[in-house]
Amino acid sequence: MKLITGGYAQGKLQYVLSKYRLREDAVWDGVLPEDGTQQAGTAVVNHFHRWVRRRLQDGGCPEEEALAFVERCDNCIIISDEIGNGIVPVDAFERAYRERTGRILMELAQRAEEVERVLCGIGQKIK
């Protein structure tokens, strides 16, 4: 599993598609491929943070679900926005969203064979 992070509008998906020569049809946008989904090759989960947000809104447990996903799909690339470099929000949900997304990404980074951060379209390998 590979993890790609970076700010909004930094060209992360484009970076991944061109680096790994993947096509748009490998991309899952804001969702995790369901258990049993047939996919040849690498699955790319784009906007992972949006999936976390929706699971929190729906009262799910994104921590467990995300770990279970990478366990069964270890040939995947997860792309998430960096959302934690701003003022800590006053709203409790917004605060929990950043905090829990950050902690999930740390867990994934621990497990990832490679972590890259994309800034202005340029990848920096940080693990």
Binding site: G7, Y8, Y97
Partner: peptide, 10 residues
């Protein structure tokens, strides 16, 4: 000089 305004998640 650029500005990193991309990482606050808002």
């Amino acid at each position: 000089v650029g500005n990193n305004v991309f990482e606050d998640g808002i």
